[in-house]
Design a protein around this nucleic acid. Structure first.
Lengths: 236, 236
DNA sequence: CGCACACTTCGGTCCGAACCGAAGTGTGCG
DNA sequence: CGCACACTTCGGTTCGGACCGAAGTGTGCG
């Protein structure tokens, strides 16, 4: 027996946290970037509150979730962008086979709203995310030659639009995130998150219901038309 | 109960493959990019051959491993760069806590050889990987402004040295891979793999024993000094 | 041929963990 | 104060899967 890799036990433990379907459902739900209560997750996953309580304990102890107690509520959210990135990577790995037909009409319409535009942890995804990524690329603001990278013009563009980019952390400025519905990469990383936040703050986009789906508002259509030359029809 | 994400079951199944310590040991061993026989892996992991046979069956069925039967041997290797990337990402997530002290002297010396230089699936890692990455960056061949990217000069450099870069596949030309021992990113992706292959093919580096560890040869020191201005002392 | 070897299949044991309902703790509101 | 509600803890059941050794299959070599 040669020297085993010392990381194996911890790697197995980490994977084990995702390796349960109930926990996987929760983690994917939390990819919307918001905090959910334990009860909401229990109903979403279809298990008893007591069962879910145990799962949350494990996920928090394992460092995947951060929790915040407010009164009688226990709010949990993903512990950080690294966790979201990890889940997105894992999900992208299985996405090819996961392109299954939705069952009910309700799921179908909800699915098509999700396909049009949604948030992916903290950035924009779906056709909306791809459209934005393509527009940035066409205008020479984003380079896709060797991985994603912001060009000089791209950096200026963010500044001109009034979107601040925090370059201090370890998180990459831009990152490609493989889109689940479009099968193509969209903009993630610090810039992707800042753009998404700006879009929601300024009313370019609004969330639909309580899900991850988002839609572009009329003012958003105007702004994106002016700033990136995107035609309104491409956003619907 | 809102509509569950259809990817959850498959996500859990995928994670479940990594969620066993014995399988994790095997997967990390296979990160050396080579094919191992079932028996070698069984001895490495310290379990009975029959037990390991079952594990290999699951990993192959799950798409993480590719197998090749030759006579009475069953060779397995990682199914592709995506799998290696996934494992590296997962391992990087736990690496911070995994910086444990080695137990025995044998592990200690083996560990320090690994820290000096090793392969990480198909590219170079350890201090050697970092040194190369830094040298490429200093000379303006690699940009680290917003994620990793090859510059125009970098593309020319690879051509001049005689390293062909296959840009056809879906794999990114360059990619940052978080180094387990150095806690910094080194060069991965198509260019990282091509550089590693070239280094081994031309004798710049040789593998030490049967492990992932590699060392730079005298001819390698000369070549890297000429091509990248790396001092020989930095490679020892 | 027959033995050694690599791997697989099978039967059986054992442990961990996912689940539920019931009872308990703590919070907020009328 | 007392009830409703959100969550947690506990006991008990059930199920999957990791493991081993023994027996079976197939390959290569003398």
């Amino acid at each position: 027996m040669t020297a085993k890799d010392t990381r194996a036990p911890q790697l197995a433990r980490l994977a084990g946290l995702v390796a349960d379907e109930t926990r996987a459902v929760c983690l994917l739900a939390l990819l919307d970037g918001r905090a959910w209560t334990a009860g909401e997750l229990a109903r979403h996953a279809g298990v008893a509150a007591s069962t879910l309580s145990g799962h949350l304990g494990r996920l928090v102890a394992g460092g995947l979730l951060a929790e915040e107690r407010q009164g009688r509520h226990r709010y949990v959210r993903l512990a950080g962008p690294q966790v979201a990135q990890l889940l997105e990577d894992l999900a992208a790995q299985v996405a090819p086979e996961a392109a299954a037909r939705p069952r009910t009409l309700r799921e179908s319409t909800a699915g098509s709203a999700m396909a049009r535009g949604r948030t992916c942890y903290d950035h924009l995804a779906g056709r909306l995310g791809i459209t934005l990524t393509d527009a940035l690329t066409e205008r020479g603001l984003l380079s896709q030659d060797a991985g994603f990278a912001l060009t000089e013009a791209g950096l200026r563009w963010f500044g001109a639009v009034g979107i601040a980019l925090d370059r201090k952390g370890r998180r990459p400025l831009v990152r490609a995130c493989l889109d689940w519905t479009e099968r193509r990469s969209h903009l993630a990383g610090v810039a992707g998150a800042a753009l998404c936040r700006h879009a929601l703050d300024t009313g370019w986009c609004v969330r639909i219901g309580s899900e991850r789906a988002v839609k572009v508002t009329p003012s958003g259509e105007r702004a994106l038309g002016e700033l990136l030359g995107i035609e309104a029809a491409a956003l619907r």
